[in-house]
Amino acid sequence: MAIHSPESRIWWNEPVARGELVWVAIAFVWGLIMFFMMIYWHIYGKQNLSAVVGRVDPEVYVGKVEAFTEKYKVREEGETGIPVAKPEAGGDAYMVARTFEWWPVLELEKGKSYKLHLSSADLQHGFSLQPTNINIQVHPGLEHVVTVTPNESGTFGVVCNEYCGLGHHVMGGRIYVVEPGQGG
């Protein structure tokens, strides 16, 4: 009985039923498989989070994003006045999270790689790219550089999925992915 002390003084040496041992072995091996699956994916998989990160003053980061946006601005987003920036393929793209927006809007080309810089100007935010469903935490003071290669064209929403205050649910952003040579 689980509410009584073990019946024999030395229970460690009692035999264990075979079915139980087999299950323990299965659980152990399955654990190893799941463990090595993560390592395997780092070597052969294409979706791994970048480890490129540096400390940055939030104001300095905002300055970098503004300079980037000025250089690569191609138009404004509808009537919102939010700039749309189209970085060079293979180059750097910047986005800043701040209460309550993702800024600026980006336009990327399908199949091209970009170094996407993410950081926050104030609180923690969550970069949630939809509908592809990529979710990355964004901290103030940490500049995270993720190399992404969009593999489908279309309009993608960026939702904030880390609670950042009472206006959290209006915090949105956008990334356009166009066929190479189009857009602008």
């Binding site: 987003e77 919102t80 939010i82 927006e101 993702w102 809007v105 939809q130 929403g157 960026v158 939702v159 999925n161 880390e162 609670y163 959290h168 649910h169 209006v170 915090m171 949105g172 952003g173 956008r174």
Partner: peptide
């Protein structure tokens, strides 16, 4: 932790 699935008041809703 999100109040509004429709993001009604967002400038760039999804």
């Amino acid at each position: 932790r999100h109040w509004d699935l429709a993001m009604t008041d967002a400038a760039l809703p999804y």
